[in-house]
């Protein structure tokens, strides 16, 4: 991608954030006025462990330029080990992205706690930049 293209390209990024830690961390980013690119659309889930790989693969094959699942740090899960389940599934998702011809950088699993507002903003900023560098999803029509 040319640098001009990178600037023009506004990726659509989805963040699936668990209610107890990451969604709260995203809220804290707001409360602390940490700025990050406006490309991220957050979808609240109760636990990162409730996200079916289908949802991620579907999103990425239907035009999302990037998807990030955010969960509690290991040990912090409100439901004991949902985040660890999510971690296992994320490995599977990453592997399968190859099968779908999608760059694995388009998907990420990240831990964000309720007190990590700035970290959430940083994560979103970096992820957006990463996606911008990659350019539009191969599935974007």
């Amino acid at each position: 991608m040319s640098s001009a293209g990178e600037q023009d390209f506004e990726p659509v990024i989805l963040a699936l954030a668990c209610n107890w830690c990451s969604y709260a961390g995203a809220d804290l980013a707001g409360i602390s006025r940490c700025q990050y690119p406006a490309n991220v659309r957050i979808i609240r889930v109760m636990c990162s462990g409730m996200v079916h790989p289908n949802l991620v693969i579907d999103a990425l094959t239907k035009g999302a330029d990037g998807v990030v699942i955010c969960g509690c740090h290991p040990g912090d899960c409100h439901y004991q080990e949902g985040n660890l389940k999510a971690e296992r599934r994320a490995e599977a998702i990453t592997l399968m992205l190859q099968d779908f011809g999608i760059e694995e950088e388009r998907f990420k699993l990240a831990w964000v706690s309720a007190s990590e507002g700035p970290q959430f903003a940083k994560l979103m900023t970096e992820f957006t930049e990463q996606i911008k560098r990659l350019g539009p999803s191969p599935y974007r029509s």
Binding site: G30, C34, Q35, A38, R44
Partner: peptide, 23 residues
Amino acid sequence: NIRDQCSWVHMHEPEKATRKAKD
């Protein structure tokens, strides 16, 4: 959530924030 996760984190991009709020 168009405050904590929109207007507050995109304070300098009203146009984009508005678009995101619609989304």
